[in-house]
Amino acid sequence: MASSTTTKPPVYVTMSALDAGHLTLPENLFVTDADPTKRATVPSLSFLIQHPSPPSSRPGNSTTTTTNLLFDLGIKRDLTSYAPAQAAHIAQRHPIIVDPDCAASLRNGTTENPQAADSAPLLDPSTEINLILLSHVHWDHVGTPSDFPSATFLVGSGTLSLLRHGAGPLYPADTFNSDEIPASRTVEFPPVSRPDGVYASSEPRHTPSPASARENLPPAAGGWGWQSLAGFPNALDLFGDGSVWVADAPGHLYGHVNLLCRTGPGRWVYLGGDCCHDPRILRGEKGFALYDDGKGGKRSVHVHTGVAKDTLDRIGEFVKMRGLEKGEEGDGEVQVEVVVAHDAEWREGNRHRFWPGRM
């Protein structure tokens, strides 16, 4: 695993999964060879990543020594706050569970946490979350941003334009809330250079971030730029120490990004967002389903199915290249765990790794 050009000891982050609502997916829209009558209620997971550094680039801005980063916010607890066009789509995803949402999970921990009731918050979403990185801005990932008035939002390039103006006939503006995330506290990652093609030509334009939002970024933000990393053509070293990498993950929705976190010697967790919606696709047992697009053609749940397949292939190849870190952290095997947002199997088998537990 290539990291920043440094000889310093490796930096590790701690991670915890968070319940952030559930929704119900008809399998025939997501995986090949599905029973057309089968529907599965799955989580929309969020993750807490804690980095051992002060949470701001501004000197003296905080007395704490930990940056609290959230990856995705899940589902809004108030379903009536979605845009009307979103509501029509969401009506097809019931049953939907909104309790606990992301904020409640931060305060109380898992439902199995015996100290949750009548105790002080484990983590206060209004004051103790510094950064929120959204994999993308579909309705089941944006949560309730107003719960986090102190946080700076990080999103893929083009996201703010997508929210305001939409992107083509499949993603009209009315399928988003234009003010979904606070623009004054939102930073888009740098634009990604792509080969000319269908996907690149239709991507929303980049929106420069205000200086006020950048004040609360990690010190490394001044040098943010995309670089190749172990098969990923575009990766960004979030903290400048190789502990957290943002991976450009095109195909699902414009601005879609993933996160790669180093949690210990030879141990990495790859948060795949919506690179796929079912663990069987990750295992190669199923493929992306295609269905009628209403215009005489076929489409998948991804904005560009071919590009989404390429991204999934890169993730698979990356997991196979587990020997890359030998020599950096000893001769032990490197483990890469991939977790996608809607993996019900992973959730059920890893309840002990939900906040305040650790991954």
Rank of each mutant, 00 (worst) to 15 (best):
A167G: 04
A167H: 05
A167L: 03
G168K: 09
G168H: 09
G168N: 10
G168M: 11
G168T: 01
G168F: 09
P169R: 13
P169S: 13
P169V: 09
P169F: 10
L170H: 13
L170W: 09
L170P: 02
L170N: 12
L170D: 14
Y171Q: 14
Y171K: 08
Y171H: 09
P172I: 03
P172K: 09
P172G: 07
A173Q: 13
A173L: 13
A173D: 11
A173R: 15
D174V: 05
D174L: 07
D174T: 08
D174E: 14
T175D: 04
T175S: 06
T175P: 00
T175N: 08
F176N: 12
F176I: 07
F176V: 02
F176W: 08
F176Y: 14
F176K: 06
F176M: 06
N177T: 06
N177Q: 05
N177A: 09
N177D: 07
N177I: 05
S178K: 13
S178C: 01
S178T: 07
D179Y: 06
D179M: 07
D179Q: 14
D179E: 12
D179N: 15
D179H: 09
D179W: 05
D179L: 11
E180T: 06
E180Q: 15
E180K: 08
E180P: 03
E180M: 13
I181M: 13
I181D: 10
I181R: 14
I181G: 15
I181L: 15
P182H: 10
P182M: 11
P182Q: 14
P182K: 11
A183L: 06
A183K: 05
A183E: 12
S184A: 13
S184P: 00
S184E: 10
S184V: 03
S184D: 08
S184C: 01
S184Q: 05
S184W: 00
R185P: 03
R185K: 14
R185Y: 03
R185G: 03
R185L: 04
R185T: 04
R185W: 01
R185H: 06
R185M: 06
T186R: 06
T186W: 03
T186N: 05
T186Q: 03
V187F: 02
V187M: 03
V187A: 03
E188A: 01
E188R: 08
E188P: 08
E188N: 10
F189Q: 04
F189W: 04
F189A: 06
F189R: 02
F189G: 04
F189P: 01
P190R: 14
P190C: 14
P191H: 08
P191Q: 11
P191C: 02
P191G: 07
P191Y: 04
P191N: 12
V192D: 04
V192W: 09
V192Y: 12
V192N: 02
V192F: 12
S193R: 10
S193H: 11
S193N: 13
S193Q: 14
S193L: 07
S193E: 12
R194I: 00
R194L: 15
R194S: 00
R194A: 00
R194D: 00
P195A: 15
P195K: 01
P195F: 01
D196N: 13
D196V: 00
D196H: 03
D196F: 00
D196R: 08
